[in-house]
Simulated assay, not measured.
Amino acid sequence: MALIHPTAIVDPGAELAATVQVGPYALIGAGVRIGEGTRIGGHCTLEGPMTLGRDNVVHPHAALGCAPQDKKYAGEPTELHIGDRNTIFQFCTFSRGTTQDAGVTRVGDDNWIMAYVHLAHDVQLGHHTILANNATLAGHVHVGDWAIVGGLTGVHQFCKVGAHAILGFQSHVSQDVPPFMTVSGNPLSVAGINAEGLRRRGFSRERIGLVKQMHKLLYREGLTLEKAREAIAALKGMVEDGDADIDTLLSFLAASTRGIAR
């Protein structure tokens, strides 16, 4: 049996694995599914339909699976899916999706999500990300793997943040942030690439040099976006394992709908 504090309230329609722990005064609603080894802190509220995977740690006062803050929402059974091994700190709020999108807000695996972070409806958060205190992702925002969002940073609805990007403290993000880039400020500016992050993730010197070259073509040569994409594509075959990095950037640019931060 799950270890449930006697003051917690768990709806009979919730499904908790045998090794789940639930702290005092927590509220687990119907349609909530929680995987093995996950710990729910005191005073948390989890509303279904939602799935929370294995070995997550949810600190006190988090509210997960809440109804979307969207006036068009009319009670449809949308969902929140959270993967494995995430750490979710105090007072975080994650909303379910809406029928205007896929109907599911998704959080991947191995994310470090600090206090007071808000994930609005239909957010798609990847794996291994870090969201610092009070980071706020509006509806339909997509964040790629290994991205870092600084404290008090707001990301406008429908924006995309690419893999390995880093958003500085208190940034105002109203356009898409390409992979590998470091951005900050209001208005937002691109400072360079996330070289230290790439080194920590095992990128070779040559791959980091390739990313620097792509940044130069995109931001320092005065090229149109289309010409920059062509020049970046021409770099293929030059660096071992570098073609995947080129594809990551080119795919992101092709999918951008709000224009990129430049």
Rank of each mutant, 00 (worst) to 15 (best):
F169Q: 14
K160D: 09
N133K: 06
M238N: 06
H81L: 08
V104I: 10
L64T: 02
H156Y: 15
G162D: 11
G259W: 05
L217D: 08
T136I: 13
D11V: 00
N133M: 11
S95H: 14
Q157M: 12
M114Y: 14
E36P: 01
T38Y: 04
I193N: 09
G65H: 14
G185W: 15
Q21E: 04
A234R: 13
T19G: 05
F180Y: 15
N134C: 15
A138G: 01
G185H: 15
R106T: 07
L225T: 09
I4C: 08
I34M: 00
V149E: 04
P178V: 14
G42K: 00
I82K: 00
V141Q: 07
G35Y: 15
G23P: 11
K71I: 03
I88R: 03
T7H: 05
H59K: 06
S251Q: 13
I113K: 03
I130N: 14
A147T: 15
T93W: 01
A8E: 06
N111M: 03
A254W: 01
G222E: 10
V177W: 11
K72S: 15
A233W: 09
N134Y: 15
G150Q: 06
N133E: 11
E226N: 10
G259A: 07
E226R: 11
T129Q: 00
R96L: 09
V141C: 07
V104K: 05
D109L: 06
G192Y: 08
A191M: 05
S251R: 12
A132M: 10
E230C: 03
S204I: 02
G126N: 09
H127W: 08
F89H: 14
A102E: 06
Q69H: 07
I246E: 11
G139Q: 12
D109Y: 11
E79T: 09
A163E: 14
A2Q: 00
I82L: 12
Q175E: 05
D110S: 03
G202L: 04
D101W: 14
A165I: 13
A163N: 14
H140C: 01
V107F: 02
H172M: 14
H59L: 09
H164P: 04
K71R: 00
T129D: 00
Y25L: 14
T93K: 11
I193R: 04
N56W: 03
I113M: 11
V183D: 07
V143D: 04
I260L: 05
G185K: 14
V32A: 04
T7V: 06
T257I: 01
S251H: 10
V20P: 00
V58K: 13
H59R: 05
A231Y: 02
S256G: 06
G48Y: 12
I166K: 02
L225Y: 05
V20D: 02
K236Y: 08
P77Q: 11
E76P: 03
D55Y: 13
G242C: 06
A26C: 07
V190I: 05
D101L: 14
S256C: 09
S204N: 10
H5V: 02
H172I: 08
H81Q: 03
G192E: 04
R220L: 13
R207M: 13
S95F: 02
G154D: 02
A195L: 12
F94Q: 11
V32K: 04
F203G: 01
